[in-house]
Design a binder for these strands. Structure first.
Lengths: 228, 228, 228, 228
DNA sequence: GATGAATGAGGCTTCATTCAT
DNA sequence: CATGAATGAAGCCTCATTCAT
């Protein structure tokens, strides 16, 4: 279920079928943007959503518009998760950890989206996304303050640092690493240990160390690779 | 100066002017891949290199070929830097830190390049890049071993973990953050503190904390942003 | 009020609201065909008529059908005016003049419509329009004969000549001439003087001569106009 | 042979083959604009010119650009003809007549072009076309003055009137009239008689009167014509 | 009946690649 | 060899028309 951020609140709500289509399109776009970047052919998105191109274009007059909608959707979801984390966890530190761990589907695609200059330009210009983003940062800010007040988070970082680290961690090492899950968790734990107030014991890393030989050694492909 | 990784070692070395062209093309491609992604029009690359498309295509029969050449160039440079870091620094830890800090121009463009699924597919299939990569990992492996032996690097990480973290840190937070340099340095320091053997004191973070308000709050543009 | 030229005379007359819709659509189409040519999007016509596309298509199964209906409507109106002119004016010459002056709204849109090859093909194929056209020509024929019999119209022209001249005069000089009304009137007067039986005094032209400087000298726009 | 009105005079002249292509494209466009209006598919123009679409677009980056080029070409040709008529004929009246008769291929397509609002907008914005147009009007102005000074042209018309009449006469009665040549000539003669200084004898009309029955009665086409 | 959503063919334009000069 | 022209496949987007609500 996606949120409809139409510009004009006065417009009538979408008809049931139109609504369903809209959601399918956003879902398909999210998924394809994540896997193939924000330049996937519109037709592919439409096909993957099970609609015709025309329908896609009726709903989103151009690619920018679709990218904006996906960004809004993702930020809204993330904001909801962040607020839940802030409220439901017993300590600031726990909120922070949950926050850094949670936003799986969400930030993933947000940030993959953001890694394209094209997408970034578009999102920058969208006021609604900016509002969501600001709320998200505000939530993060209060979690950081809480965690620092309780003495668990080192005092010399700001919410901006956390956000930046956050953004970095959300880039997966490579789209197709065989065990990217474990890898990401371990990296996150290292980072959390680095964020602990000095002197406080950090946690051990989950799983076994990743050896060099586990980094994917890439299969040859058949082309002669005749290069310059 | 770039290295020529032509497939056939028997071929005569390029004439001086041809060589110059090749270098200019790779330079232009590196720069444009970094700023605009690996899908920039070939003509634009040619223009920026000061040659005609024809020349570009004589040197690199297609885009893949050019991407491969850029990747090889970058990995070769990185490998050289890594080897220097391994040899020239007094301790394993110092080597590691230098490694993580050094590969500025280099990995930057490698990884930005790699952030495109398209580019990744191509590089995966290139044996020479893989060889360079493996050498790079081998070097990293020995640096990690040394640092662990000397007790500075926590024992429960492997070179693979470091490589993955490395990859993460190389993604800049956003194309146009006003102070992305400071941001990256601070994030790196947090990560290094997390990598320290527990109990050993880490370093303080450089500069002031980054507050939420420093995250770029994006200027509105005027379009009505009529979306779905 | 438009005339309904449905093919099947047996059909019941339209309900009042349906009738209203039909008239609004034809009115909107006439107006848009005149200003934007006969290729305006159907949706725009529908919107301008205050109905949904569906309604438009229920009434006119395709664009051809709508163009036909507009043509019929225009020809019918013109025919009525021509017959009135033939009957109500004291002399043949007066009838002719009135005819040439009258068909303002009517022929205007007919002929603008006809300036499109597409529209012309369609109207050519429509029997009803042809019947109307033939009646119109017959009326013209009798007016011409009368005027020649009374000695006012030169003897060496036929109704066909008049029709052709008529058609020419109906094209406005340019969509946006500031004083196209005066221009058209003066041109008409010149033509009437040419049609007078030689020796009979013609009328002076209305208004002042149009100088070259009155022809719209078009404002520059800023684009560099990079052409081949 | 067309004239190259490239914006930047510093550019090198086109290569022989490119030049040939350019001319073929303009020729094809002129012809197709004339027969089908200025919205003919670009592919059709390219095909008719014997080149690929890509070539067309290399030469003319978009449709506007092509329309501009055609307009420039036409105005340049017309201007040349007008200047010849002004200089080579013994009297002002003769110049005027030749002018009104000459511009066959030329004005035809110019004005058909102009009958489309789209094309008009484009041409309005093109400075070069405007310059050509102004020269043309200046030439016309002097011809008119000469003819009035010699007493052949009625004194109460201005060059602007002539231009407007000119424009009207250039619209052919219908694209496919069987004898549109005769028709146009006779209409022109009527107009010339109307332009004569009163009292001076005009010429008789060429050929026989055009009767109503010669106006094309349009063949039925087979569709049932089920309309609203 | 009326409405507006969905469809998909078709036109526009870009750009990777090939080829003549 | 270098250059830049030519080609055409492929992506974007618009609209005529059909169909579910």
């Amino acid at each position: 279920m996606t949120t409809d951020f139409s510009a004009s609140p006065g417009e009538p709500p979408l008809r049931a079928d139109a609504r369903r289509n809209r959601d399918q399109i956003i879902g398909a776009a999210k998924s394809l943007f994540t896997s193939d970047g924000p330049e996937v052919p519109m037709e592919e998105i439409a096909r993957s959503a099970g609609v015709g191109v025309g329908t896609l274009y009726r709903r989103f007059p151009d690619r920018e518009s679709l990218i904006r909608a996906v960004a809004r959707d993702n930020f809204a979801n993330t904001l909801a998760q962040a607020e839940a984390a802030a409220v439901e966890e017993p300590t600031g530190w726990d909120s922070l950890v949950r926050l850094l761990k949670s936003s799986d589907e969400l930030q993933l695609s947000v940030h993959l989206g953001m890694s394209s200059p094209r997408a970034w330009e578009i999102v920058k210009g969208d006021e609604i996304t900016q509002r969501l983003r600001n709320s998200l940062l505000a939530t993060l800010d209060s979690v950081v303050a809480t965690a620092q007040a309780e003495g668990s988070l080192r005092a010399d970082v700001g919410a901006g640092d956390i956000a930046a680290i956050f953004a970095m961690l959300l880039r997966r090492p490579g789209p197709d690493h065989p065990d990217s899950q474990r890898l990401a968790e371990r990296a996150l734990q290292v980072m959390l240990d680095g964020l602990r107030t000095p002197g406080r014991p950090g946690a051990g890393l989950p799983g076994e160390p990743i050896s060099v030989s586990e980094i994917p050694l890439l299969k040859r492909d058949k082309r002669p690779a005749r290069d310059g």
